[in-house]
Design a protein around this nucleic acid. Structure first.
Length: 331
DNA sequence: CATCGATGTTGAG
DNA sequence: TCAACCTCGATGG
């Protein structure tokens, strides 16, 4: 999925364009009809992201919980107020998008009548909308509300903004107690929890478990927001063998993993991309921004030479997920 | 047109 | 450990 950084970006977008507005909710696809009826006529009052989940509060303390799973995505249309951070990040993403290699977020920096998709990577859709936008056709032919395309689980419509949710693994209403219970099960999130406390919690749990560190990083009860890409990259950055039991990873290395996650998440939220290679020269940086394939140390690089030592990057299944790592650097 | 896979999680066996 | 679930672009015939 969209790992933690995407969900925080979506929450920002929702905060700027949905919160504070009354919504008309619908479920064109038909799988959230009752929930949509309950939401309609209420105003969104706040939003928060924790790990890979977003919680949107409405009048009367009614909450919408959304988990995108592996395929979920939000599409925003209409008059979109753009977060300055996101807008500047997208200025840099322009060429990337036209190459179709990254559509994490597509925004018109001007912030009006733009379309944006945040969630699972869907390059063709992103390109299509991008081209509509750049040719100006979308604006001139725009109808309101926008036509429903595909399986839209939930549409949130304010007077001027439309947010469509597709393919979530979870989209449900919760009471405040249920929200609290859901969040209580999650490990620390650097953008939610105090950093020092988060580090202690993470370190304590990891250092107690016999479970391979490669699994612990993916365990949302241990730490929130890390997915398959960040997992592989963080292990490489730490030169850590994914099979090392948590309890056998030196404490300073465990703390280093947490601090690395703090940094990577922050970069991810700022840029909208999973940039995991530091210290690139200008050419390397351009390559990394332009192509997914040049952005990572090991992720999705099975069989290719390690960027550091030349050894073939290994691919194995760990708990039914693909794990990429360098058997030499991460011995 | 059919099949596959993907940044994920749950629950049955 | 494995299947199920959510969606759709990419791939192959």
């Amino acid at each position: 999925m969209p790992e933690g950084h995407s969900v925080h970006r979506i929450a920002r977008q929702v905060a700027r364009n949905i919160v504070g507005h009354e919504v008309a909710a619908s479920s064109p696809q038909g799988r959230f009809v009752e929930g949509a009826a309950v939401l309609t006529g209420r105003a969104a009052t706040s939003v928060r992201a924790v790990g890979k989940q977003m919680f949107l509060q409405f009048d009367d303390d009614l909450w919408l919980r959304v988990h995108l799973g592996m395929y979920g995505a939000w599409d925003f249309a209409g008059e979109i107020s753009v977060d300055p951070t996101i807008a500047s990040a997208n200025g840099r993403m322009g060429q990337t998008n036209q190459r179709g290699t990254d559509t994490e977020a597509i925004l018109d920096a001007a912030g009006e009548n733009s379309l944006t998709s945040i969630g699972a990577p869907r390059s063709a859709r992103g390109r299509f909308r991008m081209s509509e936008q750049t040719t100006g056709l979308a604006d001139e032919d725009a109808t309101w509300p926008p036509p429903v395309v595909g399986a839209v689980r939930l549409r949130l419509l304010t007077a001027v903004t439309c947010a469509d949710l597709r393919g979530p693994t979870t989209c449900e209403l919760q009471s405040p107690d249920e929200v609290a219970a859901t969040i209580a099960k999650l490990g620390p999130d650097p953008l939610v929890d105090d950093l020092a406390e988060g580090e202690e919690r993470f370190t304590t749990v990891v250092r107690r478990k016999p479970t391979p560190i490669g699994l612990l990083l993916m365990d949302q009860t241990v730490v929130s927001g890390i997915g398959n890409v960040y997992r592989a990259e963080m292990l490489f950055r730490a030169r850590l063998n994914p099979h090392t039991p948590g309890r056998d990873v030196p404490e300073e290395i465990v703390r280093g993993l947490w601090r690395d996650w703090v940094r990577l998440l922050s970069i991810g939220v700022e840029t909208g991309q999973m940039m995991t290679m530091d210290g690139l020269d200008a050419a390397g940086y351009r390559r990394a921004m332009a192509s997914r394939d040049d952005r990572h140390w090991v992720y999705h690089r099975a069989g290719l030479p390690c960027r550091v030592c030349g050894t073939e990057i290994a691919l194995e299944e760990m708990a039914a997920r693909k794990l990429y790592w360098c058997p030499n650097c991460q011995a």
